[in-house]
Design a protein around this nucleic acid. Structure first.
Length: 570
RNA sequence: GCGCGGGUAGUCUAGUGGUAGGACAACGGCUUUCCGAGCCGUUAGCCCGGGUUCAAAUCCCGGCCCGCGCACCA
């Protein structure tokens, strides 16, 4: 176990779930300090991606009914067909194995795979025969209600809950684009082999923003502020750029301004959370790597002891999700966008003659009529002597005498569009872990090595520790009094009188507490206490009556404590 | 899922068939105690299940977990 993991467990950041029953891979408990840290990172995210955007936050169920994931594509594309060797027990993804050995694509269905196995007598590399192909779905399934119940899945991402509520959300935003909808919560993936501590979990925390934009204006009003921001980009061909975001969009490296804007905000967020800029990069998905719904996707990756890991994905999901849910639910999920000025358009309309259509096409005539009405004819098509329409997949020739063509002038006040969506999706567990790794440091104090967690002050789970120099009255009572006072002002404060003062300083250095307040002999002479800085162990003296104000200011900034009082024991 | 290695107090670790030992941490006490001080005391452990044996932390089988490699990661 790495030194940092050892500390995180011992000090109460992360614990193995179900530990007394032997544990289960892919699940962790957020212990007191880890929970505090993650909550603070969540709040920073909320501040940056909800409060300071035209965005709202919602909370939808973690269980979804089957229909949702059939529409989203997860029920099928999230399922692999697996084949297992009867001899050596090795399991392959059927489509990959067939592609590799036989060189062609196969349908991802049990039947298709079975047929291929038989026809080509495909065998495992060890020479063994394969058993029956079996589906493996990366979603956890469950039953809702008694008896056989209704099939449901635990959500593999929070996003679908937002797409499903889109009609209500669009109305909430009074049909004005762009707007964003966020969700912070748990998602679930039944990983085949979870590894690497908290990096690949079966139950994890996401913070996702779905930012809905007009398909022809994929921009963000805030992008101007970030046009000159220089970022490290690794594009899909593997080329590295150190380039301003404005130029990256102009040169077509980044597909649009909205993605670029969120890359900038993501960078800002990660740095404020405590990620080391030198260990941060943005990497574009290769064409063969992108998910089925995305047209461009950039990952924020951070360098950890596990290598470069993805902590944020920023994808242009286009209109994929809304279109799919519209199709599968039958609901109109478009937004009506009015033109500035109404536009008059000359149109050629096809008017079906039901008197002729009816007897000729019988049951199909209604659908044929609808198809005719929805046709948009160009100039050249008006003089054709028949029209071909497609009804239920069948091409039907409609003779000239069944319709008339009328040229009319219509006034268009706007158009219906299905918005596109730009999705920044954050893995909170990974970010929390990476922040811990990047904050973990050691240095030397008085010739002795010290472990110190250099968390950003506003992120630390314990912000202030109040320590009586001596663990007896009146030091203890005064310290407890001050602890209560700080807690009442909303500062996460801990009181600790156990062990020598040096030992206690080390304890709080290790968990990243930015400031220790010490009550010493002088406190009883002049009502002052010391504030000690975690990073350089320096101390100042401040009056107890100013303590709350000084600490509040220090905790929300990176100002030097020496600005706030006289140096003590310098 | 496969292969290799591992699993002993909270943490790290000694222990190759015969009474489980240490260090650190934690807790209580003593010490006018500002950077892991000292002294005394206390708490606390062989991953789980089965087998072999008079006797298993130790040997065998299965499971779970951890690490590494392969595979997987919409």
């Amino acid at each position: 176990m790495s030194e940092i993991m050892e500390m995180l467990i011992r000090r109460g950041f992360l614990w193995q779930s179900f530990e007394i029953y032997g544990g289960m891979a892919g699940f962790i408990d957020f212990a007191p300090l880890g929970n505090g840290l993650r909550r603070r990172i969540e709040n920073l995210w909320r501040e940056m991606f909800v409060i300071n955007e035209r965005a709202v936050e919602i909370d939808t169920p973690t269980i979804g009914i089957e229909e949702v994931y059939i529409a989203s594509g997860h029920a099928t594309s999230f399922t692999d067909v697996a084949i297992e060797c009867r001899n050596c027990g090795r399991v392959y993804r059927a489509d990959h194995y067939i592609k590799e050995k036989l060189g062609f694509e196969v349908d991802e269905s049990i039947e298709a795979v079975k047929a291929v196995l038989q026809e080509f007598d495909l065998r495992c590399e060890c020479g063994g025969e394969f058993g029956e192909p079996e589906p493996f779905n990366l979603m956890f399934s469950t039953r809702i209600g008694p008896g056989k119940g209704k099939k449901g899945y635990l959500r593999p991402e929070t996003a679908q809950g937002i797409f499903i509520a889109f009609k209500r959300l669009a109305e909430y935003f009074r049909d004005r684009l762009p707007f964003g909808v966020a969700q912070i919560g748990r998602s679930y993936r039944n990983e085949i082999s979870p590894r690497q501590g908290v990096i690949r979990l079966r139950e994890f925390n996401q913070a996702e923003l779905e930012y809905f934009v007009h398909p022809e204006h994929k921009e963000h009003p805030g992008f101007e502020n970030y046009r000159n921001e220089v970022v490290k980009l690794l594009d899909k061909s593997g080329e590295e750029h150190e380039i301003s975001l404005g130029r990256a969009v102009e040169e077509g490296i980044i597909l649009n301004g909205a993605i670029a804007y969120f890359i900038a905000r993501t960078k800002e967020f990660l740095l404020r959370a405590g990620i080391d800029e030198k260990r941060l990069r943005f990497r574009q998905h290769r064409d063969d790597e992108r998910a089925h719904y995305a047209s461009d996707c950039w990952d924020a990756e951070v360098l950890t002891s596990y290598g470069w890991i993805e902590v944020v994905g920023i994808a242009d999901r286009g209109c994929y999700d809304l279109s799919r849910h519209s199709r599968f639910s039958g609901e109109d999920l478009s937004i009506f966008i009015p033109y500035r000025e109404p536009v008059k358009v000359r149109k050629k309309l096809v008017i079906p003659d039901m008197g002729k259509l009816g007897p000729k096409f019988r049951k199909k005539s209604k659908k044929i009529a609808d198809a005719l009405k929805s046709l948009e004819l160009g100039e050249s098509e008006s003089d054709k002597d028949r029209i071909v329409v497609e009804v239920d997949g069948e091409k039907i020739e409609v003779p000239e005498d069944c319709y008339t063509i009328q040229e009319v002038e219509v006034t268009l006040h706007g158009e219906k569009v299905i918005p596109h969506v730009i999705e920044p999706s954050f893995g909170l567990d990974r970010i929390t872990y990476a922040v811990l790794e990047h904050s973990f440091d050691r240095d030397t104090v008085d010739g002795e090595e010290r472990k110190v967690l250099r968390l950003k002050r506003w992120i630390a789970p314990v912000q202030v520790a109040v320590l009586p120099l001596l663990s007896r009255k009146p030091f203890t009572t005064k310290a407890m009094e001050i602890t209560e006072m700080l807690k009442k002002s909303g500062i996460f404060t801990e009181y600790d009188d156990s062990g020598s003062i040096g030992r206690r300083y080390r304890r709080y250095d290790e968990i990243g507490t930015p400031f220790c307040v010490t009550i010493d002999h002088q406190t009883f002479e002049d009502e002052t206490v010391t504030i000690r800085d975690r990073d350089d162990t320096s101390q100042i003296r401040v009056c107890v009556k100013d303590l709350r104000e000084v600490l509040t200011e220090l905790l929300s900034s990176e100002r030097d404590i020496k600005e706030f009082g006289e140096v003590f024991r310098g």
